[in-house]
Design a protein around this nucleic acid. Structure first.
Lengths: 135, 135
DNA sequence: GTGACACTTTACGTTAACGTAAACTTCATT
DNA sequence: AATGAAGTTTACGTTAACGTAAAGTGTCAC
C-alpha cells in the first residue's frame, strides 16, 4: 500500500501558507520531507506536522518551541528513561501554559462582553436622540 | 481623593517586565503616563492597560493589534455611530479569534494527553524489563 | 557638596519569521 | 524546439519587540 503524498504547493494551498514558509520550517528542522531528485515530497506524517506547527503558531508558540517538542517526541522513541522523563516534564509544562491561556481567554472574553454592552448602550442612546429630533 | 500612582520600576517589578519594555509600549502609543518633570507617573488606569497588554501578548496579540483595540475603545467615547459600529465589528472579530484559540487549545491538550499516555506506557515497559534482569 | 541611585533620552544592535528577487532545473505542452 | 508552470537554491531585505550601551538629569542621605 502506497500512502498519499503531497507537493509543496498542495500543502501551501491547503493550509494557506507560502511555499517559502514551508521550506523555512524545513530549514529550521521542523519538517523532513523526502525527495525525488531535488523535488520535495511530503508524506501524511509531514502534513500532520505542518498542521501542528500552524496550530502552535496560533497559540503563540515559537518555531523553536515546536521544534523542541518534535525533537523530544522523536527522541522518546529511543526509549531512554531520561528522555522519557524529560518529555513528561515538558508535557506538563506545556499543559500549564495552556491553562494560563485558558484563563487569559476567559478574561478577555469577559472584557469583550463588557465592551460590547457599553457599545450597544451608547448606540441605543444615539438612536433615541435621533427620535427626539425627528419629532 | 488622590488615587494611587506608580513609578516605572514598581510596575516593572510587579509584572516582571523591563522598564525598557514599558517605555517601548509608550513609544508605540499603548500607554500615556503623566509626568512630573520628565519622570513618568502611572495611574491605576495605566496599570490596567499594562495588564491588558501583557495578557494580549500571552495570547499572541501583537502590540499593534492591542493598540488598535485601545484606540477603538477610546474613540468610541466620542460616541460617533460609525466608530461604535466599527468597534462592534472588531469586538466580534476578536471573539472569533478567541474561539479558534479555544479549539486549538483543546486539540493540543488532547495531543498532550495522548503523548503522556504513550510516554508512561513506555516507562512502565522499561520498568518491567528492569525487573526481568533483576530476577 | 558629593556619592549613589532611580530616572531619563538617544541610538545602534539583535532575533525570529518570513518576503522578495535572481538565476537556475525539470517537466509537460504546443 | 520553445514556452510556461512548478520546483529549486542562494542571498539580501524587512518588521516586531525589545536589549544594551552611552551619556545626562534629579534628588535624597550623609
Amino acid at each position: 500500500m502506497i500512502s498519499k503524498t503531497y507537493s509543496i504547493s498542495e500543502l501551501a494551498a491547503e493550509f494557506d501558507v507560502t511555499t517559502r514558509s514551508i521550506r523555512f520550517y524545513e530549514d529550521q528542522g521542523l519538517l523532513h520531507p523526502s525527495r525525488r531528485g531535488q523535488t520535495r515530497i511530503y508524506s501524511s506524517k509531514d502534513r500532520v506536522r505542518l498542521k501542528l506547527i500552524l496550530r502552535g503558531k496560533r497559540l503563540g508558540f515559537s518555531l523553536a518551541e515546536t521544534r523542541e517538542l518534535f525533537d523530544l517526541w522523536d527522541d522518546s522513541l529511543s526509549g531512554s528513561e531520561k528522555q522519557l522523563q524529560l518529555l513528561l516534564k515538558t508535557i506538563n509544562g506545556k499543559r500549564a501554559e495552556l491553562e494560563q491561556q485558558l484563563k487569559d481567554i476567559a478574561m478577555v472574553q469577559l472584557e469583550l462582553d463588557n465592551a460590547e454592552s457599553r457599545c450597544l448602550e451608547a448606540l441605543s442612546e444615539l438612536e433615541s436622540k435621533k427620535q427626539m429630533t425627528a419629532e
